[in-house]
Design a protein around this nucleic acid. Structure first.
Lengths: 344, 344
DNA sequence: ACTTTTTGGTTAAGCGCTTAACTTAACGCT
DNA sequence: AGCGTTAAGTTAAGCGCTTAACCAAAAAGT
């Protein structure tokens, strides 16, 4: 009826009736029922996002980027957590009907689940998924190159015995970073020593115990590369607990560049993943799909970047002269602000 | 039709047809449309949660508690962020129709907005809201007593010059904690020195600059109470940056007990808010309301607790003998696990 | 043998909206 | 004056489900 026209401010309503309707809305406290609108209109103007949890800044940043971008385009965003894989399936169908498309940040979802979705015709963008075979629109980060950057940085500082706290098995990011670590060593003519690789879980306590393990080797490393910032924090604490100093005694480098990385002491040298930007990119792909535009790239891999702070330094026995490249410190400051006008 | 009976596994369907329907569902890849179900059934079996952001562990923990509890009762949970107040209003109506009730974690929402909701008959539970006049079901924490606990702890350690990094104006939690600080000093016969109170923003960089400000006073405090853990982290860094040690030179106590508090170095003494538990309590109230049970208490205030770790110590000039009460350290370990069987 | 109950399944109506097609009145043109 | 055209508003149908009422056949009772 005419009310619908008023609500969606469409033409062909006189100012008089428009005002009359507005008044009635005010008086009765009416609000649209979005379920009904979605049912009738065939679209909900809402995109859903599924994340494993919300307790790390890592997720927070990606979600923030995606949310901001979705809203910027006039749509709304609904978030839901899917802790275990059995649940994910339910979750996905649960969002059906109330969203137009799904952003999936589920690093361990089996391909099979994704295929089902695609066949059902649900627009889906996958974020940070292990290198799956199926070609779904996805946003990833160059984990391999990032790991190489990290190790090469340590090598350039003169370190020769470099420990790795790796991510848990089953994540694409874990194996890519391990691969980068291995090949960086290889390229430098160093042997791969299995005892220097300790598995972690991407979380801080896991990094702490992994760090202790590395420190209690008969010949401990002079530098440690942790495959996540959270684990790097844990490693730094293990080092402090042992009475050693970062970076004078042991250098530590992380991966992710979560906001906290610049706020701990000493500030963490790390490999930056453009987390906010990943969310933005995923949201943009989704919006393009919903508008019927086939996105030019269906798979985006964003670059990583070394962010040099204070947790890495020259190896004890190494020659003191730094190579020129080490002098130019990274100058980046929340680069996404430039790119997408992030509202502060 | 019969399909509906199968989907909701209701009786009066023979095994044969039930199987036939299941097969058809499999074959065609059918999924229910929840918008339609909600429209027809009058309820969506979903509760919505509105939070200002998702980038702090503080929010993460509360959301986790609420999510877990909502799911435990067989319902689903939808999260949405509402950064600014103008937006909140839209957000709230946005969730209308696709949720049965709303959990509001919006520390600065004006009462007026909440009244509108209540009058519209939307079941609402408010979490951590400043002491509003209206009596809506809500879950809060005893911020005043928590602040007293913090200051009394420092006093017992012999500190007499205690700085406060307060929360931003406009939050109920900020003023309650300031009040607790003042009255604890008063009760100990100490004067209230305005120069020792520096406003913060609950976030780490804010704590950092507030800490620097306190340290550059002509007569700096020997202990600092930060009204949030994040700010306490910032304060600790300001102290380290100045070449001082925590707690030997300056003691630091926080507020919240976010998971990170136990993971930084030195581990942070803090006032524990049962964050997970707050989410659980709010969810329980909501579920009770949706089931038509008037909850026994419509306003719950959860207690705070001192968690003594390593960031606080005796004041430099104070007598060395600790009072007996100081010897019994808090033994709590994620207390919520006992209470609600939190799945690990 | 008849009625009563149970089981399995169908039909009817409508949740609150939107899209699309239709109607009426007012206006401007030759 | 007669025509087309636009503006304003109405009517009709249906999105995919659920609830409620209904119906028929099989099972159970007297």
């Amino acid at each position: 009826m005419t009310v619908s026209n008023v609500l969606n401010n469409r033409p062909n309503v006189s100012e008089a009736t428009r005002a009359r309707v507005q008044e009635a809305i005010q008086r009765t406290g009416y609000t649209v029922n979005l379920a009904a609108r979605g049912l009738a209109g065939g679209r909900t103007n809402t995109v859903g996002m599924l994340v494993p949890d919300l307790s790390t800044q890592y997720m927070g940043e990606i979600v923030r980027g995606a949310s901001d971008e979705v809203r910027r385009s006039g749509m709304e965003m609904l978030i839901s957590t899917a802790s275990d894989i059995t649940r994910e399936r339910n979750q996905v169908t649960f969002l059906q009907g109330i969203t137009d498309g799904l952003l999936l940040l589920l690093p361990r979802t089996p391909d099979e689940t994704l295929v089902v979705l695609e066949q059902a015709g649900v627009p889906v963008v996958v974020i940070d998924h292990r290198g799956s075979k199926i070609m779904l629109p996805s946003v990833d980060v160059d984990n391999y190159s990032g790991a190489r950057l990290a190790v090469e940085h340590l090598l350039a500082l003169g370190h020769r015995r470099i420990g790795l706290v790796s991510g848990p098995k089953g994540y694409g990011a874990s194996s890519a970073r391990l691969q980068g670590y291995k090949e960086a060593l290889l390229a430098a003519g160093l042997p791969f020593d299995k005892t220097l690789v300790v598995p972690g879980d991407f979380l801080q306590p896991g990094g702490f115990s992994a760090g202790k393990k590395l420190l209690s080797l008969r010949e401990p490393p002079t530098a440690i590369f942790a495959a996540s910032d959270l684990m790097a924090f844990g490693v730094m604490e293990a080092i402090k607990e042992r009475g050693l100093r970062v970076p004078q005694d042991i250098s530590v480098i992380g991966f992710d560049d979560i906001p906290m990385a610049s706020q701990v002491y000493p500030p963490l040298t790390t490999i930056r993943q453009p987390l906010y930007q990943m969310g933005v990119a995923a949201a943009r792909m989704m919006i393009a799909m919903l508008r019927g535009v086939k996105p030019p790239l269906s798979r985006i891999t964003l670059p990583t970047e070394l962010v040099e702070r204070a947790s890495t330094g020259r190896a004890a026995g190494a020659p003191p002269a730094p190579t020129p490249h080490l002098l130019q410190r990274s100058r980046r400051l929340d680069k996404e602000k430039e790119v997408v006008d992030e509202p502060s």
